[in-house]
């Protein structure tokens, strides 16, 4: 094997071994730079839970709060609005909210812990535009006389009902996401902290 005192097999092994160790080392060296681009501690802190006082939220009113830099809508739905949610199953993509767009405590047609209080992230699931609020039912919203009230995304025409459920055959694929939230008291909710099961 050896020629001129050079063991080529051994040399090749050592070269490969050195290159291999070097490659692993380079990988470790790259890691800090890659990690430095993930959300910083400050960004995470800014993503901390937000407490919202809902005592002044009248029926039919919608409140927009910022949570993790996203608009979150809190809508106190009137009984008429609650009624509008029924009977839409045929025109909705996922009427029972079976996709994982909400915590388990906010399933069903109301998609809320307390049925009348809707809490959703106000960003279209298509490409993240913020839909217009077209809460009034009827032709006044400009979406036809049979519009039951809901949200309409002006970017690409996606429609959502008053539970944030998406219509069929619009660009948005999924219902508006429900953020994790919980009731601290009857009049105060916390965005970002999950409701414990069985409490409400």
């Amino acid at each position: 094997m050896s020629t001129n005192g050079v063991d080529k097999k051994r040399r090749r092994f050592l070269v490969n071994l050195t290159a291999g160790v070097g490659a692993v080392g380079s990988g470790f060296a790259v890691a800090p730079f890659v990690m430095s681009m993930t959300p910083s501690e400050r960004a995470k802190a800014a993503g901390a839970p937000v407490e919202v006082d809902i005592s002044k939220l009248e029926p039919g009113q919608l409140l927009t709060v910022k949570w993790r830099g996203k608009p979150v809508w809190l809508l106190n739905r009137t009984p008429v609005m609650m009624d509008s949610l029924k009977g839409l199953a045929d025109i909705l993509e996922d009427p029972e909210s079976t996709d994982a767009e909400q915590p388990t405590y906010a399933k069903g047609i109301a998609r809320a812990i307390k049925p009348e209080l809707l809490v959703v992230v106000g960003l279209c699931t298509h490409l993240g535009c913020s839909p217009d609020k077209k809460l009034e039912a009827g032709a006044g919203a400009g979406l036809g006389a049979d519009w039951p009230g809901g949200f309409f995304c002006p970017c690409h025409g996606s429609k959502f009902d008053l539970s944030g459920r998406v219509y069929k055959n619009v660009p948005a694929p999924r219902n508006l996401p429900v953020p994790p939230y919980s009731f601290k008291s009857d009049t105060e909710i916390v965005l970002g902290i999950d409701q414990k099961e069985g409490v409400a």
Binding site: A43, R68, K70
Partner: peptide
């Protein structure tokens, strides 16, 4: 999230 450096487009995104 890694591209933005935040949960939304923010100062971190603009800076990078």
């Amino acid at each position: 999230e890694w591209i933005r450096g935040d949960f939304v487009i923010s100062d971190a995104t603009l800076n990078r």
